[in-house]
Structure formats: structure tokens, C-alpha cells
Simulated scan of single mutants.
Amino acid sequence: MVSMKKIISLALLLLLVGAGLLVVPHLTAARPAQTATTTAKRPSKKPTVPKLTRNDLQHSKALTYSSIIYFAVKHSKLQRWQEVSDFKLGWQVEIYPRNGQTKYLVWPDQHIQDSAKNLAPNWFRFKDSQHVLYDSMIVHSFRKDQTKTASLTEIVKQINTDHAAAKVRAMPQRLSVVTHK
């Protein structure tokens, strides 16, 4: 016959195993959550591109032209500026200094050939060191050209509001500049 001591030991052992089966799931469920918060990797952030500044424009003519073109395409409401809205093709800017006044003609496609330059392009000029005058000829009309004036500060502010600094900083790679004398 089985002794009473063995029965009590067996009962205690079963009681401990039963209690362990009840407690262990609670302990293991709590533990991964704790380790997950301490060892989980934070989601990687996109590299932050610094906001565009007027100082950036003063140090790079190509970035200045890119900012001016971006603003014209996205915010000028001058219809013909949409002709240069293909950011993949890029742009060609032709600089024509005349009598102390410089015009910047803007053509679609950084590799445009003279044979493709059939219609007068959009253009801009600097009214002073702070303001840009945009011009857009109305095709097949004898009406006055459409114009818009914007300050460089307004242009930079709008680019930053659009969160487009990275896009504008990439534009000079697809911009060619031709200077005429």
C-alpha cells in the first residue's frame, strides 16, 4: 500500500504544477511586452532635408533658378508656365543680358535643341535683389503678356510650406544654363 506521506507529496506536487500552469502564462505574457518596449527598434525616419533659406539661394544660382521655376509651375497661376512642369525632363535657362536688364528664358527639357524652340518661352527677370517678375506670353493673341511678381522670401516660404525643399534641391541636376553675351 502507498504510504500517506507519498500521497501528500504527490498531492503537493500536483498542486504546485497546477498553480504553475496558471501563473506561468501570465508571467510570459507580461514579459515580452516589457522586453519589446525596451529592445524594440524605433521606426527609422526619413533623412531630414533642411528647409530652404534665402542664404541657400545667395550661394547657388542654379538653386535660385530652380526655386523660381518651382514657384512659377506650382503657384503662379500663369497657364503657360505649365509647359515647363515636367520635373523629369528638366529645364534649360537661357540668360540674355540687354541694356542692364537680364532676361531668363525658361525652356522645357534641359537638353532642348534650338530647332525645338519655336514659340517664345516663359521668362523671368529680377526687378531688384528681392523680387522676381514672371512673364508669360498669351499664345495666338495680341493681348498683353500675363505677369506676376513674387519676392524671393515668398518663394522660399512657399517651398518650405509645400515641404518641397528636397524636390527643389534636386532640380539643379536637371537644369542647364546657357549664358549669352
Results as ranks from 00 to 15, higher is better:
96 Y>S: 12
140 H>S: 09
169 R>M: 06
169 R>G: 03
68 I>R: 00
173 Q>P: 02
14 L>I: 14
170 A>Y: 06
147 T>N: 14
131 H>Y: 07
46 K>D: 09
115 S>K: 12
42 R>W: 04
99 N>L: 06
149 T>F: 07
123 W>R: 11
133 L>I: 09
99 N>A: 12
41 K>Q: 09
172 P>S: 05
171 M>G: 02
40 A>M: 13
114 D>W: 04
56 D>F: 03
52 L>E: 01
152 L>G: 02
181 K>G: 14
72 A>Y: 02
17 V>P: 04
156 V>L: 06
109 D>K: 05
2 V>I: 15
11 A>P: 04
30 A>V: 08
151 S>M: 06
36 A>F: 13
101 Q>K: 12
167 K>Q: 15
20 G>E: 06
123 W>D: 08
126 F>I: 01
144 K>D: 15
17 V>M: 15
77 K>M: 10
69 I>G: 00
39 T>P: 00
103 K>Q: 11
170 A>D: 10
72 A>E: 03
37 T>F: 11
68 I>T: 01
21 L>Y: 12
181 K>C: 00
129 S>N: 13
91 W>Y: 09
50 P>E: 07
130 Q>F: 07
2 V>A: 15
43 P>W: 01
27 L>M: 11
152 L>C: 06
95 I>V: 15
136 S>F: 03
99 N>M: 07
123 W>C: 01
143 R>H: 11
71 F>K: 00
70 Y>Q: 00
36 A>T: 04
1 M>P: 10
169 R>H: 11
91 W>H: 08
159 I>C: 01
11 A>G: 12
171 M>T: 00
112 I>G: 03
50 P>K: 12
144 K>M: 07
131 H>C: 04
69 I>P: 00
74 K>S: 06
98 R>V: 08
123 W>E: 14
162 D>H: 04
106 V>Q: 00
147 T>C: 04
99 N>W: 07
167 K>D: 13
99 N>P: 01
77 K>C: 03
71 F>S: 01
10 L>M: 14
103 K>N: 09
137 M>D: 13
160 N>Q: 10
29 A>V: 13
163 H>W: 02
98 R>N: 15
167 K>S: 11
80 R>M: 13
29 A>E: 14
91 W>M: 01
54 R>F: 07
70 Y>L: 01
79 Q>G: 05
120 A>T: 10
82 Q>I: 01
143 R>T: 11
64 T>I: 01
124 F>T: 00
20 G>M: 14
14 L>V: 09
29 A>W: 10
58 Q>K: 13
59 H>Q: 15
99 N>S: 14
35 T>I: 14
90 G>L: 02
127 K>R: 06
46 K>M: 09
164 A>T: 03
2 V>S: 11
74 K>N: 08
5 K>V: 05
31 R>N: 07
67 S>F: 02
93 V>M: 06
106 V>F: 01
156 V>S: 02
50 P>H: 08
62 A>W: 00
150 A>L: 11
145 D>E: 14
168 V>I: 07
75 H>R: 12
25 P>C: 06
31 R>E: 10
6 K>H: 10
33 A>D: 11
107 W>P: 01
59 H>P: 03
56 D>K: 02
156 V>Q: 02
1 M>L: 12
3 S>Q: 10
46 K>H: 14
57 L>E: 05
28 T>S: 12
150 A>C: 10
